[in-house]
Amino acid sequence: MLQGHGDDGYKYKQEIKANFSTNIWYGGYSEELKQHLINNWSTIDSYPEASAESFIAVLAKDLNVETDMLLAVNGATEAFYLIAQCFNSSSSTVVIPTFSEYEDACKINNHKLHFINWKDLSSSSCFDTDLVWICNPNNPTGEILLQKDLDHLLQNHPNSVFILDEAYIDFTDTISSSIDLIKKHQNLIIVKSLTKNFSIPGLRLGYLIANKALVQKIEFYKAPWTVNSLAIEAGKYLIQHKAEVLPPVKHYKSSTEKFAKNLDEISGIKIHPTKTSYFLIELEKGNSTELKNYLISEFGILIRDAKNFRGLNSSYIRVATLNEEKNQLLIDALQKWSKLNTL
């Protein structure tokens, strides 16, 4: 994690009353999952399955794919580093601004890096690198790439492997997963996270899906036992009960639209459009670090300072929609900050 991460609340001694810095589904905590893990606590007495086989079996059935098209990982980030290691010393294009771990993983594994801005990404974009990294929906902008456009890109670039990060696919109803393209194209790897949509970031669980040859190639670099016993049990439970715990997208989207509209009425900030529950705010005065420190010290509110996203600067912050009460805390705090900056 060379460039840092957004959710750094652990660094602060004061109480965090509202954490807008993380894109985790705020209503996803499950008492039923907690009880399930308590009931399976004895699994920590032994080594976990080397490759999370029982979780993969449940997942394969749910997705209607073969088990050897899947690889369980310790959060999506492990997948990015495994892929970069598998293609050591290759060339990579990263569509920015985006999650910094793609670039970090590539740097560690001696990739020659190229960058393209999201606003320039389309079905007619040209790539001449070995790998292309795309977050869809994108973090931090909330922008999306339509499946038909991805289909064109895969068709037009058979010599490039596309890594599609779908960690936030359950936070939008504008697009759905592109998993069905896996069987059509041999140059697509999709990485999925269970930590954001199911609100279990502390358990670290995700998976990648690709054709069997690519999965086997990547799996060669994977250490055993990276997915622990409780994460395996959580994964099986969540996949089997996903309808009960996934974010209610229509409600979430409506809440985000209302939240963004109220924020947009505050002088000195610009709200960027989004297809997800999180979005960028551009500051017309002041800078992101000063604002972050002000919100923490005065209100116990944590936001994402977005200046370390390549392609952005200290004029940007990212926030995620929380419940109405917490959203109002940020609205009130930013109104006070705005008045201070107009004096």
Rank of each mutant, 00 (worst) to 15 (best):
F299V: 01
I269S: 06
I303Y: 01
P140E: 07
D45W: 11
K292L: 09
L208D: 00
K13M: 14
S54Y: 08
G268T: 05
N293A: 08
G300T: 04
L302W: 01
T172P: 02
K339I: 15
I281A: 01
V58I: 10
E284I: 14
S338P: 13
Y26S: 03
N23H: 12
K11W: 11
H272C: 13
A76R: 07
G300E: 02
F171V: 01
S267H: 15
N228A: 08
L334I: 08
K336E: 14
E265Y: 10
T174M: 12
S125E: 06
W337R: 06
I189D: 00
L312Q: 06
K270C: 12
S314T: 12
F279H: 05
P158H: 06
D62R: 13
K285D: 04
E257G: 08
Y294T: 04
P140K: 05
Y102L: 09
S92Q: 06
K184R: 12
D7E: 13
K17V: 08
E219F: 08
R204D: 09
I16K: 04
T67S: 10
F55G: 01
S122Q: 10
L59Q: 02
H36R: 12
D264V: 10
Y12F: 15
T276F: 04
K339R: 15
T67Y: 02
D128I: 11
I232S: 00
L230Y: 10
E103D: 13
H157N: 07
K11P: 05
V215C: 03
F115W: 11
H272R: 15
A76L: 05
T77G: 03
G235F: 07
N323H: 12
M1Q: 14
N159G: 08
N109E: 10
I189E: 00
D180M: 06
A52L: 05
L71E: 01
Y47T: 11
L302Q: 04
T274W: 02
E78F: 10
K192N: 09
M1C: 13
P248A: 10
S176H: 10
L246W: 06
L329V: 02
W25G: 00
A18Y: 01
A72Q: 00
S193Q: 04
E257H: 12
T77K: 06
E290I: 12
K250N: 12
S338C: 13
K217H: 08
L181M: 09
V94Q: 01
A57K: 15
L329S: 06
D120K: 13
S315I: 04
H241C: 00
Y12A: 06
T93E: 04
K183R: 10
I296A: 03
D149A: 08
F299G: 07
I296T: 09
D170A: 13
E284C: 12
I96K: 08
S288W: 05
K270R: 14
A60S: 05
L238Y: 01
K13D: 15
S92H: 03
W41G: 07
G75S: 02
K184G: 06
D128V: 09
I232V: 12
T141Q: 08
L153R: 02
L145V: 09
G286C: 09
I303K: 00
I200V: 05
Y316D: 01
P137C: 04
W41Q: 15
S255F: 09
E15I: 15
A105N: 06
E103K: 12
I232Q: 07
L71S: 02
A79I: 06
A223K: 15
N40G: 09
S124M: 13
Y29H: 15
